[in-house]
Design a binder for these strands. Structure first.
Length: 716
RNA sequence: GCGCGAUUAGCUCAGUGGUAGAGCAUUCCCUUGACGUGGGAAGGGCCGGGGGUUCGAAUCCCUCAUCGCGCACCA
C-alpha cells in the first residue's frame, strides 16, 4: 500500500479493469461457492437477477442515474458474495420522444428544423447522436463501479429486441387487444405528435371566461375560437331553467359567421352549477365533448389543424393561430351583440406537454391503441395477493388505484425516432393489418394498394417488455435461467410509465410477473431540497463529484439515510464526509498491515478475553447487517458499518490494540484479531464502497484469498 | 372532490409499543507515531396541535393544521 492519503484516482480505473478482466460480472464465470458457504446458506448457485433500467442514451449521467447504479450494484454485489449466480443486465434506451426532443433542441440551436428534413435523414442523424451518447453513458456507468455483465448488454433498437416487440404487437393484435381507433388524443403542436395522458401535465392558468349568447341560451367558454362548429347545445335533463327545451329540439340562431341550426341535447354529465348550466360542444377538440358526441352519435368536425391554426370552417378567421384569433373572434361577437359578459380572472387547469410546456390541443386522430383493462385485471389480482413486493409499501396502493382506473394506451407517435410500427393500411378502404414480415402488398379486403404506417411506437411500449425481451424470450437460455427476475429497482416517478406496464406486458407474454420485488427510489435533490435543473444552476454532476471525492464516497453518500421512495437532499458536504471516511479506511488498513508484516498465517493464535470480545461484537454486526441487507435496508446497513468501522474499530479496538501489539505474549492474538476485523469489515463495506475495499483486499496478508474481494463470501 | 405521503436536535434524515438516535453543523480541549481528511469531550428535541387505546405511545386509533405528490373534474 502506498503512503499518504487515499487517492481514488489512482485506484478506481485500475480496479474496474481488474474486475472486468476477471470475467466475474458474467454469472456464468462465477466460481462454485465454497462448500461452507453453500452449506450455510443452502443456496448453491441459484440465480439472482436485476435488469438495469435502460438509461436514456441522449446525454450525460446525472445524479439520479448515480443512485440507480449504486443501489443496484449494492444488491448485485451483496448477492454475488452470498454465492448467488448474480446477473445485473445493463441496457440503454433509444428513448424515442425524449431523445427526439433533445435532438430537436440541438437542431434549433443550429438554426435547423426537423420539419425541413427528410425522415430518413433525421433518423440517421439521431441514430449517430444516440450511438455516440451510448458509448459515453456506458463509460460513465462503469465509472460508478457498476458490476454489470456487459457481455449481455442490450439496446432497445437491437434487432432481437425489435423482433420481440413486433411479436408482442402481433400477438396483442391477434388477441384483439391492439386496435386502430379514431379517438381523441393529446396533440402537442410544437412536437407534432400525439402523447399519452402520462406525457402531459396539468398547469394552472388564469384566463377569461366568456359568456356568449347562443340563441335563447347563454353559454360560458374559455375557448371561443373552437366554437365555430358548435351545433349542439347541452344541458342537464333535470335543469328546471331549461325545462321548456326538449331533447332533440332544433333552433335557428345567429352565430359567429351567420345563422345556424342548433340542436338541444340533454345529458346528465352537465354540471348545473357551472356557468349557466348550458354548454355547446366541440367533439373534435375536447375529451368530454368527444365522449358526449359518441354517446349521442353526433357528427364531429375539425376546427383547428395540427399546427394550431383555424380551418376554413372559421370563415374569415381561417389560417389564423388560435391565440391571435381569440380576441378578434370575441370582437366580432361583441359587434354582433352576442357577448353577455366576460369574467376576467377565471382560474382553471390546462393540459400541457410535459417536455415543452406548450398547450396540448386535443385532436381526433386515427391511432393504434392498446386495450388495457384485460391486461390490468390479472396483474391487479397478483398484486392484491402479494405476489410482488413493493418498497416502499404504499406504492402498492398507488399501483392498484391506477390499474383499477386504467384507460387505453395510445401507442402511435408521429416521430421518426423510434421503432416503426409494423402495420399497413389500405389506401382505399383504410383497412389496417399488422405486417411484421413486411411482405403484404395488397389489401386483403379490397385488393387495393397498401401503405405503410409511418408512425413509431411510444418508447414505453418497447421498454415495457424489457425484462423478458433482454433475456431472449421465448426460448433463450437466459430466459429459462433468469426469468422472472428478482428486483426491479427504478425511480418512483415512473411507476405508471414503466413499472405497471412491465407487469402487464410481462404477465401477458410470459404468464408470470417479470419481477418479485419493486424497489422505488426517490429523486436526488440539491442540498436545499430543490429539484436539480440546468436553469437553476444547482446540478450536481456525478462525474465532477467522482473526480473530486472518488466514486466510493459518492456511492455511500447516496445510500446512507436514503430510504426507498423518499427524495434525497444531496449535499457535497455529505460526500466530503465520506471521502474522509475512505481515507479513514485507508489509514486503518495501513496501520493493520504495518503491524502484521511479521504475522504468520496458519494456526489461530490464543486470544485474550478482550480480543475475543471484539470479534464477538463484530459477529453481532454481521448478523444485524445481513438482516438489513436482506430486507433492502441499505440506508441503515451502510450507516452501521460506517459507524462500527470508524468509532468502534478505529477509535477503540485499534487504539487498545497498540498495547497488545507491544506485548509479545498478546501480539499474535492482536494481529489475528485486527486482520479478522479488517477483512470482515472490508467485505461488509464492499457493496457500498467497492473500489477502496478491493484495493486493500488485494494486499491483505490473509490465507485462502479469492482472486478478488468481489467474489469473496459474505461473512456469516 | 378522492387518494397517498410527510411533519423527530440548527440542517438532512433514521427510528412502528418499553428510559429519544445518526451524520453534518456548533462549543471546548488535544502539534499522542495509521489517519489533523485526525482524537477526546460538551451543548442541543414537551418526536406538528388536540383527543383516545394501553401499565406504558415518536410508534396504534380518531381529529385538526401545515407542506408535498398523485388521480379525477375543469363548458
Amino acid at each position: 500500500m502506498e503512503s499518504g492519503p487515499y487517492d481514488a484516482k489512482k485506484v478506481e480505473d485500475k480496479i474496474y479493469k481488474l474486475w472486468e478482466d476477471s470475467g466475474f460480472f458474467n454469472p456464468d464465470n462465477l466460481p462454485a461457492p465454497s462448500a461452507s458457504a453453500k452449506a450455510s446458506a443452502g443456496r448453491g448457485k441459484k440465480p439472482f437477477t436485476i435488469i438495469m433500467p435502460p438509461a436514456n442514451a441522449n446525454g450525460n449521467l446525472h445524479a439520479g442515474h448515480g443512485l440507480v447504479m449504486t443501489i443496484e450494484d449494492i444488491m448485485t454485489r451483496y448477492k454475488r458474495m452470498q454465492g448467488y449466480k448474480a446477473l445485473w443486465l445493463p441496457g440503454l434506451d433509444h428513448a424515442g420522444f425524449e431523445t427526439q426532443v433533445v435532438y430537436e433542441k440541438k437542431l434549433e440551436k443550429e438554426g435547423r428544423s426537423r420539419f425541413k428534413m427528410e425522415p430518413a435523414e433525421l433518423y440517421q442523424e439521431i441514430l449517430d447522436f444516440t450511438l455516440e451518447n451510448k458509448k459515453n453513458i456506458e463509460s460513465q456507468i462503469k465509472k460508478m463501479g457498476a458490476s454489470a455483465d456487459w457481455s449481455r448488454e442490450k439496446f432497445t433498437l437491437d434487432p432481437d429486441i425489435v423482433k420481440t416487440v413486433y411479436g408482442t404487437f402481433e400477438r396483442l393484435f391477434n388477441d384483439g387487444l391492439v386496435y386502430r381507433g379514431k379517438k381523441i388524443i393529446n396533440w402537442c403542436v410544437k412536437h407534432q405528435t400525439s402523447l399519452s395522458d402520462l406525457e402531459t401535465k396539468d398547469t394552472e392558468r388564469v384566463d377569461k371566461l366568456y359568456y356568449l349568447k347562443y340563441g335563447p341560451f347563454v353559454i360560458a367558454t374559455a375557448r371561443p375560437e373552437t366554437k365555430f362548429g358548435d351545433k349542439y347545445v347541452v344541458m342537464h335533463p333535470d335543469d328546471k331553467r331549461y325545462a321548456e327545451y326538449k331533447d332533440g329540439q332544433k333552433l335557428e340562431l345567429e352565430w359567429i359567421n351567420g345563422p345556424i341550426e342548433a340542436t338541444v341535447i340533454k345529458d346528465d354529465v352537465i354540471d348545473m352549477e357551472f356557468g349557466t348550466g348550458a354548454m355547446t360542444i366541440t367533439p373534435w377538440h375536447d375529451g368530454v365533448d368527444f365522449e358526449l358526441a359518441r354517446r349521442h352519435d353526433l357528427p364531429k368536425e375539425q376546427i383547428i389543424d395540427f399546427f394550431g391554426k383555424l380551418l376554413p370552417v372559421a370563415g374569415e378567421f381561417a389560417g389564423m393561430k388560435i391565440t391571435e384569433a381569440r380576441e378578434k373572434i370575441v370582437e366580432k361577437l361583441q359587434s354582433k351583440g352576442l357577448v353577455e359578459k366576460i369574467e376576467e380572472s377565471y382560474k382553471h387547469v390546462v393540459k400541457t406537454c410535459y417536455k415543452c410546456d406548450s398547450l396540448i390541443e386535443p385532436q381526433v386522430k386515427e391511432q393504434w391503441f392498446l386495450k388495457m383493462e384485460p391486461l390490468a385485471k390479472p396483474v391487479l389480482k397478483l398484486i392484491e395477493s402479494g405476489k410482488v413486493e413493493f418498497l416502499p409499501e404504499h406504492y402498492k396502493k398507488i399501483s392498484l388505484h391506477w390499474l383499477e382506473n386504467i384507460v387505453d394506451w395510445p401507442l402511435s407517435r408521429q416521430i421518426v425516432w423510434g421503432i416503426a410500427i409494423p402495420a399497413k393500411f389500405c389506401t382505399k378502404c383504410d383497412f389496417a393489418i399488422v405486417d411484421v414480415e413486411d411482405k403484404e402488398i395488397t389489401c386483403p379486403k379490397c385488393q387495393s394498394e397498401l401503405k405503410k404506417d409511418g408512425d413509431t411506437f411510444d418508447t414505453w411500449f418497447s421498454s415495457g417488455q424489457w425484462p423478458f425481451a433482454t433475456l431472449g424470450f421465448p426460448d433463450g437460455k437466459d430466459f429459462q435461467t433468469f426469468y422472472p427476475t428478482d428486483v426491479m429497482e427504478t425511480a418512483g416517478e415512473i411507476i405508471f410509465f414503466w413499472v405497471a406496464r412491465m407487469m402487464m406486458l410481462g404477465h401477458y407474454m410470459t404468464g408470470e410477473l417479470p419481477f418479485k420485488t419493486v424497489y422505488l427510489h426517490g429523486l436526488v435533490l440539491d442540498a436545499k431540497g430543490q429539484k436539480m435543473s440546468k436553469s437553476k444552476g444547482n446540478v450536481i454532476s456525478p462525474l465532477e463529484i467522482i473526480d473530486t471525492y472518488g466514486t466510493d464516497a459518492f456511492r455511500i453518500a447516496l445510500v446512507v439515510g436514503n430510504t426507498p421512495g423518499t427524495s434525497l437532499a444531496l449535499d457535497v458536504n455529505k460526500i466530503k464526509g465520506y471521502k474522509n471516511f475512505a481515507n479513514k479506511i485507508w489509514n486503518a488498513a495501513k496501520f493493520v498491515m504495518m503491524n502484521t508484516e511479521d504475522y504468520k498465517a496458519g494456526a489461530k493464535p490464543a486470544l485474550s478475553a478482550d480480543q475475543k470480545k471484539n470479534i464477538k461484537e463484530l459477529q453481532g454486526l454481521v448478523k444485524d447487517m445481513t438482516r438489513d441487507m436482506d430486507e433492502f435496508r441499505f440506508y441503515i446497513g451502510a450507516e452501521k458499518i460506517y459507524h462500527y468501522f470508524w468509532h468502534t474499530f478505529c477509535d477503540k479496538i485499534i487504539e487498545e490494540s497498540k498495547a497488545d501489539l507491544a506485548d509479545q505474549k498478546l501480539r499474535q492474538g492482536a494481529q489475528y484479531m485486527l486482520l479478522e476485523i479488517l477483512s470482515t469489515s472490508l467485505k461488509l463495506l464492499h457493496p457500498f464502497m467497492p473500489f477502496i475495499t478491493e484495493e486493500i483486499y488485494q494486499s491483505l496478508p490473509v490465507e485462502g484469498k479469492q482472486a478478488c474481494l468481489m467474489i469473496e463470501t459474505w461473512p456469516k
